[in-house]
């Protein structure tokens, strides 16, 4: 018979990265992965090649990041019900990020966490009218405002979503 730890269901969080043009994205993503690992959740990253490569270069031994998948493949697999995750966290700093978040919410029917940052975070947060948990901060170059938000909400997020 396996131990409780061995028989416990493995939880995975899908982190959907946006275009890496906002400097804080990779740092915040890795900090969030660290936090998720501390809660026993394995982070899986979806993004375009540049976003994934920034994570790969920053965490070459995969201390924090788990599997990394192409964003279009990921959306296709979610739509085809080939994959599902315990948590969905979408990084949003532009309209495309909102579109990806809406798509994942619609496909999965789950409440997603929207990490909204960048120069226009308030306008972007205001444009989201589908069900999600918005975690927003004006973080462009300085990751601390978003780090503080993550510290506040992560325990709740892993317990309630």
């Amino acid at each position: 018979m396996g131990s409780i730890a061995e028989t416990k269901e493995k939880k995975e969080a899908l982190l959907v990265l946006g275009c890496p043009q906002v400097p804080v994205q990779t740092g915040i993503a890795l900090y969030l992965m660290y936090g998720l690992r501390r809660h026993g959740v394995v982070p899986v990253v979806a993004g375009n090649p540049a976003a994934r490569m920034l994570v790969e270069v920053s965490d070459p031994l995969h201390h924090y990041v788990g599997e990394m998948i192409d964003i279009d493949t990921c959306i296709g697999d979610l739509a085809d019900k080939k994959r599902a995750f315990s948590y969905y966290i979408v990084f949003i700093h532009n309209d495309a990020g909102v579109s990806y978040a809406a798509t994942i919410q619609s496909i999965t029917g789950k409440t997603i966490a929207a990490l909204i940052y960048g120069e226009h975070f308030q306008d972007i947060a205001g444009s989201i009218d589908f069900p999600c948990e918005k975690i927003s901060a004006k973080a462009v170059h300085n990751p601390m405002p978003m780090k503080k938000k993550i510290d506040e909400v992560l325990p709740w997020l892993v317990s309630n979503l």
Partner: peptide, 30 residues
């Protein structure tokens, strides 16, 4: 063959054999 990205409802237009549809890229928008 590509899963369409977007905020529902998503409308695809048709004019005979011509298709009008939204297409989103992470860095470039819709």
């Amino acid at each position: 063959e590509k899963a369409i990205i977007g905020v529902p409802p998503i409308l695809i237009g048709l004019d005979g054999d011509v298709i009008t549809f939204p297409f989103t890229k992470p860095c470039y928008g819709t």
